[in-house]
Design a protein around this nucleic acid. Structure first.
Length: 577
RNA sequence: UGGGCCGUCGCCAAGCGGUAAGGCACCGGGUUUUGAUCCCGGCAUUCGCAGGUUCGAAUCCUGCCGGCCCAGCCA
């Protein structure tokens, strides 16, 4: 796997470098990507994937894929499969595939230890009561009336919680820390709750489930993770992460990990360090799981992999190559600063990798007939074109040429604007690979619409003739009308028409900013040589953009292409379009 | 008189006491049978602001200002 830009410096790489130099963890580097299987992965997850797998790869370490499945009410196997596929597509492979639920027995044993050590207690307060006791951001909380139960009583109660003797929500296991802490996460946070819900991985084996803060740190430690990378909002949770690991002290209590050994899992207990970095946001897009979920659920898009979605499966279907996503996140950097990257940076990465890797073809998406009047009606010839302007390895192809062609309607202007250097009445333009053509006539229907343009081809300028050197202002592409293959072409644009769809300060929500023109379907004409492309094959339709054969709908005899991105267009920009 | 974090060019981002990298965007110019690609050049006397320490500060200290996160039995 080769990406186009060199790695840049960032604070996490620096920490890893420093710690290795200091001999921490014996120089070993182990990370993990820990998604909750409750939705599809998006570009933001892509950042975390590139970071975690990238750091591991860079330092010869390991990176696990771990499903953070501690809340069965929200999770589903559909998501675990899509997540695995997306990580692989992005170009990464995990060292070990794990589930937090693989460790449920360990979590349980650790909880009993906490109880025996007087560090946790079973609390009978209801959710509402807990909230009241918690205090506020500026006022301390109060101790739960159940905080001083004996270890024996707590142990008994906790075992009965596991046995299913109590109703959902009736009791929780809470850490005994400090109800007056300025950090609300330390005000006796819940460690376990009762949920009589079947679990996606463990079925009905459990009715108590661990909370994130409790499960995550132990999972990391048990997997031997050295650097636990997560996003900024967990900064406040780090003291709890460290507290749990310090109290449990896995390193000196191997019996707590025995269930894993018995189950055949490799373990290598570590004291991981949590490091937080900023999420990656993109302008003109929403990235929250909730909003993406709503777009899908409410049919505002065609599914999780709609090419307009910022999901990994969406950009994949759109035709963004995985190398472009990797380059993008490398280029964006990793810091603790909240930021929103311009979408054009991503598009630039897409163009960069596609320019080097996509063969060229001709296609006309908004056809206007062009008739070469000085060619016989049955004129037929085959022209040869290189498939890539800068890379001969792409080879050449044959393209049928005849008297009647399709050209892009946009490439002809009866009344040209200043600076327009394509075809105009009486003017000349080069037909790519053919020669220079002069417009002699414009054919219109009864209502004045232009039906066709008539041209004469200057034989001295045919490709290969000395006269072909003659300069003309413009070159346009074409496709032989008689030979062209019809294809469905989907033209995508940004899903939202405002820079920050999340901003609802004006009373409008992201739904009010959906771009009605984000998807346009047209029938285009393709030169025959690409109609049988494989699904997901990338191509540049010259002068139009980079396209991809649709992953699901494209088939031999039924070509369907998605536009990934247009070519940079300084003319469109100059013309103020 | 809650806690945590962050402020370097339009957008990202290096920089770690020795006198502001790079990318994207933008503006010029060159090459070009894709108005693409490619190539050259330009683009922060200044690092949120104000003081202080120092021969020297984006880098250290103090105080302001601005922004983000936290009161799920979510992750």
């Amino acid at each position: 796997m080769t990406d186009t830009s060199p790695v840049s410096h960032n604070f996490i790489r620096q920490i890893v470098l420093d710690e290795r130099a200091a001999g921490k963890h014996g120089g070993r580097v182990a990370t993990r990507f820990p998604p909750e299987p409750n939705g599809y992965l998006h570009l933001g997850h892509g950042k975390s994937i590139c970071l975690n797998f990238g750091i591991a790869r860079e330092f010869g370490g390991s990176c696990n894929l771990r499903f953070d499945d501690t809340n069965p009410a929200k999770e589903d196997v559909e998501y675990v499969e899509s997540i695995k596929a997306d990580v692989r597509w992005l170009g990464f492979d995990w060292s070990e595939l794990r589930h937090a639920s693989d460790y449920f027995e360990v979590f349980y044993l650790c909880a009993e230890k906490l109880i025996r050590d007087g560090k946790a207690f079973v609390c009978d307060l209801s959710a509402d009561e807990v909230r009241e006791y918690r205090g506020t951001l500026t006022e301390p909380g109060r101790n739960s009336p159940f905080r001083d139960r004996s270890a024996d009583e707590n142990l008994d109660l906790f075992r009965r919680m596991r046995a299913g003797e109590f109703a959902d929500g009736a009791k929780t296991l809470r850490a005994k820390i400090d109800m007056a802490s300025g950090n609300i996460n330390l005000r006796d946070p819940a460690l376990y709750r009762i949920r009589k819900v079947p679990h996606q991985n463990t079925g009905d084996a459990w009715c108590i489930y661990p909370m994130y803060d409790y499960a995550h740190c132990i999972s990391d430690a048990v997997e031997g993770i050295t650097h636990s990378l997560c996003t900024l909002e967990f900064e406040d949770h780090r003291p709890l992460y460290d507290w749990c690991l310090a109290q449990i002290d896995l390193a000196n209590h191997p019996e707590l990990v025995q269930p894993l050994v018995d189950a055949g899992f490799k373990t290598n207990v570590s004291t991981p360090r949590q490091i937080e970095f900023a999420r990656g946001n993109l302008d003109y897009t929403v990235m929250s799981k909730r909003k993406l979920m709503e777009l899908v659920r409410d049919g505002l898009v065609a599914g999780w992999d709609d090419p307009r979605m910022p999901t990994l499966s969406g950009v994949r279907r759109r035709g963004f190559p995985p190398a472009a996503i990797r380059t993008f996140w490398e280029r964006a950097g990793v810091t603790k600063q909240n930021s929103t990257i311009e979408f054009s940076v991503l598009e630039g990465c897409v163009r960069e990798v596609l320019d080097a890797n996509a063969p060229r073809r001709f296609a006309v998406l908004d056809p206007l007939k062009l008739v070469i009047t000085n060619l016989p009606a049955d004129h037929a010839e085959t022209l040869s074109f290189p498939n890539h302007p800068k890379n001969e390895a792409f080879g050449t192809r044959s393209v049928a040429f005849s008297r009647e062609l399709w050209i892009e309607r946009e490439d002809f202007m009866e009344v040209p604007v200043k600076g327009f250097h394509r075809l105009v009445p009486g003017g000349e333009v080069r037909l790519r690979g053919v020669g220079i053509v002069k417009c002699t006539d414009v054919e219109k229907d009864a209502s004045g619409n232009i039906i066709a343009v008539h041209c004469t081809l200057d034989p001295d300028t045919r490709h290969g003739m000395p006269g072909a050197e003659r300069k003309v202002k413009g070159t346009i592409h074409w496709v032989s009308a008689r030979h062209a293959i019809a294809a469905e072409v989907r033209l995508y644009d940004r899903l939202f028409n405002v820079v920050n769809p999340d901003d609802d300060s004006d009373g409008k929500t992201y739904r009010d900013h959906l771009n009605p023109d984000s998807k346009r379907i047209v029938r285009g004409w393709l030169e025959a040589s690409f109609a049988d492309a494989e699904p997901e094959a990338a191509v540049q339709f010259e002068r139009l953009g980079f396209f991809v054969a649709d992953r699901h709908d494209h088939a031999p005899g039924k070509p369907v292409f998605n536009r990934a991105v247009t070519l940079r267009d300084s003319w469109a920009k100059a013309a103020g379009k």
